[in-house]
Simulated scan of single mutants.
Amino acid sequence: MEKNFFSYYFNKLFYHTKPILMNLKNISITFISGKDRKEYLQNQFTNDLNILKKNKYSYGTCCNIKGKIISIFLIFDYFNNSYACLHRNSISKIQFDEIKKYSEFSKVDILIKKKIKIFGIFGKKSKTLLEKCFKISFNKFNVIKKNNFIFLKIDNEIERFIIIVSNKEVDFFKKKFFKKFKIKKCIAWDFISMKFGFPILEIENCKKFNPISLNLEKFNALSFNKGCYKGQEILSKIKYKNFNKKKIFLIYSISKKKPIIGSRVFKILNNDLIFFGTVLFSIKIKNFVLVQCIFNNFVDEKVLFKIENIKKSIFFLKNFI
């Protein structure tokens, strides 16, 4: 089932004559500006902004003092003395409140910008098409500003691009470029993120897990050399004393229902159900369900799983991320 489905779906995604375009409605953008922005955010975020170059991006997280993740984001220099953070819609408010909390003594301004649209692009010849249409080049940079557009090249095994467009430019963008793409729902973007082990954190799982458990060292979202930030001492202990006992896994099944984020996952052992982990995120494509879970580090590949509230489906381990 697994091999046939993934072959079918990825062929459907990537072997079109046109590249794929999605409106990433589940992504928001926050801007942080002001004279003290870098120093201030260095004390808030887990990534090191001192090594973030212009025309580049990095991943990061915002944690509480216990080292638990409040938000996961992609951050870049917005070219006009501000940083821009891309993150899930559901955590916008809680992230805003958290980083705003200590700002009254620093010269920083924090704004969730709403009059903006975010699109995702990937697939056959998407890079060539973008460079030709907008007269840009990604040879040296993975963040480019051109007129009222921002372009980000996301470096994974599958090349992807993000386009940030102001509302007043959306009609122009649609009229000129939509015919060049095959339009898909943003679920396809999440599917690829899950496949490559990037954690999708929604508000239901805020303040539950540390970034090491969620695979974020792999994406260079953590620095242990830049100095103090919220949760840094606890995260250092987890890393250097090997305290981390959890990891991201994917499980899958055929089901009419999609698991709820935050649901409990049980392993089946001798006809008993033993609590084993938590649903981070899930997607449903027709009746195929793919679930991103947080489990203990070691999982036997032959273990079968059940998810609460989905009584009729047994879930299988897809692979180790």
Rank of each mutant, 00 (worst) to 15 (best):
M194D: 13
K218Q: 10
K175E: 11
K174G: 00
F181W: 04
N205I: 08
K184M: 15
F173H: 10
E202S: 12
V170Y: 05
A188R: 01
M194V: 13
F196W: 09
I192W: 03
F178T: 12
K182M: 06
N210W: 01
I187Q: 05
M194R: 00
N205G: 04
F172N: 14
F172D: 05
K182C: 05
K195M: 12
K208G: 03
K182F: 03
S193W: 03
M194A: 14
S213K: 02
K218P: 11
S193R: 12
F172P: 02
E169F: 07
P211E: 09
K174F: 03
N210F: 04
N210Q: 06
I183N: 08
E204G: 02
I200Q: 09
F198G: 11
F198C: 09
I187V: 15
F172L: 14
F173R: 10
A188H: 03
A188Q: 09
K184Q: 10
N210P: 00
I183E: 14
W189N: 09
F209R: 02
F198Q: 04
I212V: 09
I200W: 01
I192L: 15
M194E: 13
K179H: 15
S193H: 04
K218E: 11
K207N: 15
E202M: 03
I192Y: 03
M194Y: 08
E169A: 01
K168R: 10
I212G: 00
G197T: 03
E169M: 11
F198K: 05
F209E: 02
S193A: 14
E202W: 00
K180F: 08
S213D: 02
D171W: 02
F178G: 00
K218F: 06
I192R: 06
K180I: 08
M194T: 11
K182A: 02
F173M: 13
F181K: 07
N205D: 08
K174T: 13
P211K: 01
D190S: 13
I192T: 07
F177M: 07
K218T: 13
C206S: 15
S213E: 07
F181P: 03
P199I: 14
C206V: 13
F196G: 05
K182W: 00
P199V: 12
K176A: 07
K175D: 14
G197M: 08
F196S: 08
C206E: 14
L214C: 02
C186M: 05
E169Q: 05
A188L: 01
I183W: 08
K195W: 11
